[in-house]
């Protein structure tokens, strides 16, 4: 199976990180992965996006034209990429910053006030982990345990409190994804 994702949002919202953790987790689970960012001046304050592919087979092109999953953290990301989601695909978006949402009916749409929830958990920075949690809750491309192991390996000694917040955010995301 091959899953193609696009994560998009404002530069600084952590969209590249979402893709990176997914790719890393996929790799740790023995899958083929690729992570291809948009780069250049756009990354400073404009829209940033990253194509991530997680696959059981060798990945031919890392360029995602028709994503199975779109994670949109702001409205311009929906406007730019939602039309290209494959029929039957998934749109996950941050309703705090996507006032117009998405009108498509042939895809599943999960909306959540991600900024609010992240603040509620205790740090706006965990928004990206919340998004990863939603993906884990909704699909089976990667497992929660892989994320937990990975985060623990480099955060436990350096910043145990942030690790707890991150894990909490993933778990909260999983709940949202399962609804």
């Amino acid at each position: 199976m091959t899953t193609e994702l696009i994560c998009a949002g404002f530069g600084g919202q952590g969209v590249l990180t979402i893709g990176k953790f997914l790719a890393k987790a996929g790799m740790k689970e023995g899958k083929n992965v690729s992570w291809l960012p948009s780069y250049g001046p756009e990354m400073r304050g404009g829209t940033a996006n990253v194509s991530t592919v997680v696959s059981d087979e060798a990945i031919a092109s890392p360029i995602v034209s028709f994503p199975d999953i779109l994670v949109a953290l702001n409205q311009p990301s929906i406007d730019k990429f939602a039309a290209s989601i494959r029929a039957g695909g998934i749109l996950i978006y941050n309703s705090d910053m996507c006032p117009h949402g998405c009108k498509r009916e042939d895809i599943s749409i999960i909306k959540a006030p991600m900024v609010e929830i992240a603040k509620e958990i205790g740090n706006q920075m965990v928004l990206n982990m919340l998004a990863i949690g939603i993906i884990i809750g909704k699909t089976d491309i990667i497992r929660y345990e892989t994320m937990e192991d990975d985060l623990t390996s480099f955060m436990k000694s350096k910043n145990p409190e942030l690790l707890e917040l991150n894990l909490k955010a993933i778990k909260r995301g999983i709940e949202i994804g399962k609804q």
């Binding site: 992965v33 690729s34 992570w35 291809l36 360029i63």
Partner: peptide, 10 residues
């Protein structure tokens, strides 16, 4: 090229 430079893969 820029894609191979910027892209991450295992």
């Amino acid at each position: 090229d820029g894609m191979l430079g910027q892209m991450m893969e295992p």
